[in-house]
Amino acid sequence: MHIPDGYLSPATCGTMYAISLPLWVRAGVVIRKTFTQRTVPTLALLSAFSFLIMMFNVPVPGGTTAHAVGGTLIAILLGPWAALIGESLALVVQAVFFGDGGITAIGANCFNMGFVLPFVGYFVYRVISWRSQLGARRRWIGAAIGAYVGINMAALVAAIEFGIQPYLFHTATGAPLYCPYGLTQTIPAMLFAHSLIAGPVEAVITGGVVAFLGKYHPEVFKLNPYERSEG
């Protein structure tokens, strides 16, 4: 789902930066309140962890492997705003220091994978696991379903960003200047790939980690400020 440079027009990239900027500012305010002076090392390690999760090759039945994103997992453990910052910084490090993923597409990638994915995933998780005990079955089931829905929503948003390109940006003769496919092609293609492979991988890893931590380290869930406020 990492969008490289060249697929989106500079106007779309600029718009996505403009949309992401207030979200980053809001996340910064929330995070500073949550972690106080520990913000710098906590975010650094969180971003490094997000980076690592995106490097993981997860086995898929049939012999191949796929990568996870991990946004819903971080949102469940540390809150959705921490997930936004962690994923965003990991994407910046990938693009700027390792040349993976577009520099101009950072705004779009952060919006899709840093905002839509963890917020949707976390919302679904909270609805399903509402008022359940830490370590309860509903927790990891909610985490898996949330991760599945979150990554598919992020894929849908990415498909819309791709799909509007040929309508808005083309030459006088009609040749597309950026992503050449319209919405009728990008949406089914992205949702097909994510609902069958990336979605289940994200669900299995997220559900698996939440089940494991719920059983052996339930105290980790209390780092999420929304979990703490519920008592």
Partner: peptide
């Protein structure tokens, strides 16, 4: 295999948070 990876990811997350505390 997936259970192993999920446990690995969980342990690395806990180690990361502990490391963040030590670094702080």
């Amino acid at each position: 295999n997936v259970r192993f990876l999920a446990r690995t990811a969980g342990i690395i997350l806990i180690r990361s948070l502990k490391l963040a505390e030590d670094v702080y």
